[in-house]
Design a protein around this nucleic acid. Sequence first.
DNA 1: ATGAACCCTCTAGGGACTACAGGGTCAAGG
DNA 2: CCTTGACCCTGTAGTCCCTAGAGGGTTCAT
Lengths: 139, 139
Amino acid sequence: MKKNAEFLNRNITIGILSKETGVKIETIRYYEKVGVLPAPPRTDGGYRVYDLNYLKRLKFIRRCRELGFTLEKISSLLRLVDSHNYTCNEIKDITSKQLSEVRHKISDLKRLEKILKEMTGKCEGGKVPECPILDALYK
Amino acid sequence: MKKNAEFLNRNITIGILSKETGVKIETIRYYEKVGVLPAPPRTDGGYRVYDLNYLKRLKFIRRCRELGFTLEKISSLLRLVDSHNYTCNEIKDITSKQLSEVRHKISDLKRLEKILKEMTGKCEGGKVPECPILDALYK
DNA sequence: ATGAACCCTCTAGGGACTACAGGGTCAAGG
DNA sequence: CCTTGACCCTGTAGTCCCTAGAGGGTTCAT
């Protein structure tokens, strides 16, 4: 109906934002409350009105959460987005800290991937292989 | 002291297990309560006694949590370890689902890594770069 | 046998959501 | 213009995954 037109005109309600991002309405309001998503403007009646920037930001937050970052960490990543207010050294500080965490996560996930791939491969002839999953992340 | 000798003899107390894995004692007990870590045998006085298998399992659980898996997912992964009760098809089903999720996470983290690395690089001459971090996971 | 270091259970709190309850707003149709 | 159903608002309480603390028992080297 009209809703879709509003979306194209960038008047995004919280319900549309929720559907577009897969983040529940209550969670969006929670993110606003704790400050990781800025408070948007409101209609006269008090409804939140978002635009495409909020959409981007929220998708980013959601994915980072799925990748195991805390809201705290995500906030410091998002500070880079608004980095006009920060000095080069502050940015280098944030990025280098996040970089080592990201790299650690990648290497662990790769080990997990290898094992899962091997297991799927071995599971062909109906016989159950000895399971090496624990060793994958044991190091 | 004697503690270390006990460790070599595989009589691992909850405190040693905690130190070895970096998982807090309370969390270990919590994992037992919710069933993701099996209840170990006890001494006459009621102390938990672990061995190297518990150590492996716990390290695995911890790292999976850091990688953003729920305890539920981890349980289903661990069921593979005790997979004598499962058919090959069930195992393939679980592993391939986890595999695609893991691959998705890796690719997202790599995009994030690239952006962070580029930003650090650009932050040289005292000027702050434009931050393209939101686009990294936006697709 | 004793004391420091360790462990036990139980309850309560925090972070990150999630699910109502009770009520107000919006806009399309009559 | 007024209704009506879909949508939104602000609480508050509950869930999951831990984490801290109280109050008390166990272990073992000396």
